[in-house]
Design a protein around this nucleic acid. Sequence first.
DNA 1: TAAAAGATCCCCT
DNA 2: GGGGATCTTTTAT
Length: 197
Amino acid sequence: MNDEFSVLPRDLLERSAVEVAPLLLGCVVVHDSPEGWVAVRLTEVEAYAGEGEDPGSHAHRGETARNAVMFGPPGHLYVYFTYGMHWCANVVCGKEGEGVGVLLRALEPVAGLELMRASRPKARTDRDLCRGPGRLSQAMGISGEDDGDDLRRGRIRVLDDGVGPPGAPHVGPRIGISVATHEPWRWRVARNRFVSC
DNA sequence: TAAAAGATCCCCT
DNA sequence: GGGGATCTTTTAT
């Protein structure tokens, strides 16, 4: 790893989801897979607070077999299966045992575009390639096998190249949940077509 | 053991 | 803008 790309330091990730989420906007995520590698830049994220603090979070009622990774050390990837077909990816943050995470909702391709298209044959346009948590996981080749991956040393890594998002991000309520919908915990970069909405 | 909901997506209109 | 797809996880009986 060179000077221009560094992994996010652990002390940064140990903060609350509401603090970490906007920091992740504009960060680069790479996946070095057997099929090839892809690199993207995060354009939309959502914060999910810890156990007992956020009714909208998988961690709200405590640790289970599914969400166990959320209660592990920060800087790992929490991947879950939903609606019988989709994988969704989160960056675990906060202190170990808190169950805090940031859902990756959308991203912009940086490299490996052809592999991403091949991974998502249903996407008719590049706009639909990785707009939404299920779509982006498919485009990046992320699945249950990646649950718990170490984002500093694993196949999938989160890097900070110092560029960050262009301008101030937009903030608004979270999407797709039925409780705690008033919390303005979704961030997306401004003036970018690679966001969920 | 059963039932319901789910941090969604796709195709149709 | 709306509904069906599809099945795991969780919670209730």
